[in-house]
Amino acid sequence: MNGKPRILVKGAGVAGLTAAVTLAERGGVVTLYDCAERVGAGASWMAGGMLAPWCEAESAPAEVTAQSVDSVDWWAAHVPGVVREGSLVLAPARDVGELARFGRRTSHFQTVGEADIARLEPDLAGRFQKGLFFADEGHVDPRKALPALAQSLLQMGGQVVLATAQTLDESGFDWVVDCTGLHVRDQLDYLRGVRGEMLLLRCPDVILHRPVRMLHPRIPVYIVPRDNHVFMVGATMVESENAGGMTVRSMMELLNSAWTLHPGFAEAEILEMGTGLRPSYPDNMPRVVQQGRHVYVNGMYRHGFLLSPARAREAADLIFGP
């Protein structure tokens, strides 16, 4: 290969944008393509944007934590607005046993009492006696972070091609990195969609500084603060590929959790109900698969923001050598 490799990255979700920026940093001439009219038009737009390598160990394999410990640093180095205030895990009084279980499965946290909770989140003072605080975690707003990555790509001389009617001619590229999720399920065995539903609420009556996870034996929910009194409440996990509107049941589960966290959410305005399909492999771990000059980065499941930096490095190592 003479000179800089020309690389087409297909799919402008979190996996594609992260890959495009990483490949451009390694010296590739990168064109990012998406058939939608804007970046982040898929499941990434609905993501919580929690950078929580240790919390995720509750249900994810140990590799998720190992491969994402530096993800907070990656995002902080690449986009503005990364908040590094940790995350807080709480449970309603009747489900307090869930905290013990969560603590046994995770690490890198402190157990906090009522006074600590009041200091961390004054609006929650007196509402919870016990919680777990993961101080080194962070969060980011996907709707700001993804466009910011597209901007960095442009600044590095890359191209972003959106919403072209005709399919892009791939013959002019040395490599094609495909990050189009479920669009390529026919090319990738065992890829499936896992439905997730989320809400955006505007609630000036409640102030939170960090994501709060509300544990529940059946329906764990997280609430992530955004700017301007907006909160993201998510997310259901349903083994279904129906991308249709949110169900009443899911809506009630999400709202119940928000209300249990703070009754001030009763007055919140519902700004948006979102549904997305998370591309997932049977082990719910992402894969980088090479087929000739095609490299597929897919199967991010619920860990797009956590794991895409590591998977982008893996794809870059395939192309440029480790």
Binding site: Y190, R192, G193, V238, E239, S240, E241, G244
Partner: peptide
């Protein structure tokens, strides 16, 4: 019940 929110939408999981 939950997995089949639409027409055979849970087929991928059922097949597994």
């Amino acid at each position: 019940r939950r997995e089949s929110a639409g027409e055979r939408a849970g087929q991928a999981f059922w097949s597994l």
